[in-house]
C-alpha cells in the first residue's frame, strides 16, 4: 500500500513537471510570437538593438577568443594522442578545424554567452519586472516586448554566428601554436590538412546552428526574466533556470540539427 502511494506520488510529480514544462514551452512560444510580431511594428528600437549588440556581442569578444584559444590548444594535444597512434599527425589541422566548425564553435560560444549575457539578461529583466519597471513601460504606452525583448532577441541571433566564427578562428590559432610549438610539427602540414578536409558545408552548418542557438538562448533568458516574480529570490531562481534550460535546449537542439543535417560521408 505504501509502495503504491510512493509510486503514485512519483507519477503525480512527473505529471506535474510535465505540465509545468508544457506551460513553460507555451509561454516561450507566446513570447516568441509576440517578439516576432512586435519586431515588424514600428518603431524598431534601433538604439536598444545597438546597446544589446554591444553587450551580447562586442563585450563577449575577449571571452570567446580566450575560450576558443584554449579549446583549440586542447584539441591539438588530444588530436595528437589519437592521430599519432595511426601515424596520422598530419591530419590534426583538419580534424581540429572540423570539430570546431561543426560543433564546438557554435555550442561552446553559445554556452559561454549564456553564462555571460543570458544570465545578465534574465537578472536585469527580472528585477525590472519586480520593481514595476516593465509595467511602467506598458503604462507609458511602450510595449515592453517591443522595447525590451525584441532588440535582445534580434541582437543575440545576429551576433552568435559571428562569435562562433571568432571562436573557431581563435581555436585554430591556438591549435596551430601547439602544433608547431609544443608538438614541433610543420605548420604547412596543418594548413594543408585544413584545406583538404574542411568543406564549406562544415562552416554553414555550424553557422546555422549558431543562429538557432542565439535565438534559443535569448528567448529563454528574456522569458525567464520577463515572468520572474517573487523579489530577489525569484530573480535568482529565474536566472538559474534560464541558464539551465537554455543550456539544455542548446545541447538537445544541437543533436536534432546534427541529425537533420547528417549525411554519411562517402
Amino acid at each position: 500500500m505504501k509502495l503504491l502511494a510512493f509510486f503514485g506520488a512519483i507519477a503525480l510529480n512527473v505529471a506535474q513537471t510535465a505540465r509545468f514544462a508544457i506551460e513553460e514551452t507555451g509561454r516561450e512560444i507566446t513570447l516568441l510570437g509576440s517578439s516576432l510580431a512586435w519586431l515588424f511594428r514600428p518603431p524598431f528600437r534601433f538604439r536598444q538593438f545597438l546597446i544589446q549588440l554591444d553587450f551580447v556581442g562586442v563585450q563577449s569578444v575577449y571571452l570567446i577568443c580566450i575560450t576558443g584559444m584554449f579549446t583549440g590548444m586542447v584539441l591539438a594535444l588530444q588530436g595528437h594522442i589519437a592521430m599519432s597512434r595511426y601515424g596520422a599527425e598530419s591530419l590534426i589541422g583538419g580534424a581540429v578545424a572540423l570539430s570546431l566548425a561543426r560543433e564546438l564553435g557554435p555550442v561552446l560560444s553559445a554556452l559561454m554567452v549564456i553564462g555571460r549575457a543570458g544570465s545578465a539578461i534574465t537578472a536585469e529583466l527580472g528585477s525590472m519586472r519586480n520593481t514595476d519597471q516593465i509595467d511602467a513601460l506598458a503604462s507609458m504606452a511602450v510595449h515592453p516586448v517591443q522595447y525590451l525583448v525584441a532588440p535582445r532577441v534580434v541582437a543575440a541571433t545576429i551576433v552568435l554566428p559571428f562569435l562562433a566564427i571568432l571562436f573557431e578562428f581563435s581555436g585554430m590559432v591556438g591549435a596551430y601554436i601547439i602544433y608547431t610549438g609544443q608538438l614541433g610539427q610543420d605548420g604547412a602540414l596543418f594548413i594543408n590538412s585544413i584545406k583538404d578536409y574542411l568543406e564549406p558545408d562544415d562552416i554553414t552548418h555550424g553557422l546555422i546552428k549558431a543562429v538557432v542557438f542565439g535565438l534559443i538562448l535569448s528567448l529563454v533568458s528574456c522569458s525567464k526574466g520577463f515572468h520572474a516574480t517573487g523579489g530577489a529570490r525569484g530573480v535568482g531562481l529565474a536566472t538559474t533556470r534560464g541558464v539551465v534550460i537554455s543550456s539544455l535546449l542548446i545541447l538537445a537542439s544541437d543533436y536534432v540539427m546534427t541529425a537533420l543535417m547528417f549525411k554519411p560521408s562517402t
Partner: peptide
C-alpha cells in the same frame, strides 16, 4: 488600443518604478 488610451495617462507607481 490600450496603448492609444494609455498615451493619455500619467502614472505614479507606489515604488516609483524609475528605469534604473
Amino acid at each position: 488600443d490600450l496603448n492609444r488610451i494609455r498615451r493619455r495617462f500619467g502614472i505614479l507607481f507606489q515604488e516609483g518604478a524609475l528605469f534604473d
